[in-house]
Design a protein around this nucleic acid. Sequence first.
DNA 1: GAAGTACTACTCGGATAAGAAATGTCCGAGTGCCGTTGG
DNA 2: CCAACGGCACTCGGACATTTCTTATCCGAGTAGTACTTC
Lengths: 162, 162
Amino acid sequence: MSRTMKMSEGVEWAIHSCLNLAWANRDAIPASRLAAYHELPPAYLNKQLQALCRAGILTSTTGPRGGFRLARPLDDISFMDVVTAIEGGDDAFACTEIRQRGPNGGPAENFPHTCAVSRTMRAAELTWRRELAQHTLADAKHQAEHDAPGLTARVRDWFGPS
Amino acid sequence: MSRTMKMSEGVEWAIHSCLNLAWANRDAIPASRLAAYHELPPAYLNKQLQALCRAGILTSTTGPRGGFRLARPLDDISFMDVVTAIEGGDDAFACTEIRQRGPNGGPAENFPHTCAVSRTMRAAELTWRRELAQHTLADAKHQAEHDAPGLTARVRDWFGPS
DNA sequence: GAAGTACTACTCGGATAAGAAATGTCCGAGTGCCGTTGG
DNA sequence: CCAACGGCACTCGGACATTTCTTATCCGAGTAGTACTTC
């Protein structure tokens, strides 16, 4: 009905920023510059990149000529890694075990099996996670380069020489 | 990082209520009674069931001896149907096309291909939706009955004779 | 001229506001049932 | 006794609060570079 079950837009920002970091191929790029490239709020993008640092996807350096850089090559960063870093690893469907409440409920010992509803939901989410884990940012980079041939050079030029 | 990308708990309530409707096998059951079975806020559950009515999964009747009933058999109601009814059909990942913004952006004509990031995200979600669409509430009902043999009779008895 | 030092500008990082959205509540419109009344 | 009628209790339905969470912003701690002072 309503627009719930929405993924944070920070995921989109994070992925594109990682791609830009790879294309720019510089030592470190500050959040403000990465934000300017997509006209995003700088401080908020910084917040998202912090999450990537905590997840070990990026590394950060403070001070002049500081900023963010990739912690490992793109083919070692899956979509799932980024989603987990930003969104957290919890399942979207949180079973609250309402079947155990109410008149026909009782102590948890009466319910040795996990809820059938929960099983189906989790299985579906698992296929989603698996699919995300099988695609890396390197794949996205190659596809984007294939779609827009001159993109790599344009991005590198805009971010300037190393 | 935070607990975002969370599915509404209304989905869980809706599925269990549909199962209870099937087990009770009565003409119509009011939201208050369905809520009491799981100790849920009656008015809010009513709100969720309204969404199922709009989606054509349930039918509603007002007045005494009114309430909700299933609009079609359980094997014709998939998990996807319920999720769509409650959460809406929009994708969790909403591509905002940030690649088109900024210095290297430009008019949409410059981007004939859909964003590679978006493609991957949508493909993953599609597997999730497909998995949900392949399982019906009848499957869940059978599994639950298999897990807890006496459940069917207990539920029907609690809701009382037709 | 070279080395040491203080200063400045710039970065991330986390704490703090603002806004949106999910969650929860309440009252009105409508409907079927039941008792009453009249034939 | 039977039928029609009026009242009543019960239901959904949508409009209205409240709480939570995402989104966004701001300022401080720390760092590297730079210019200046001193030997």
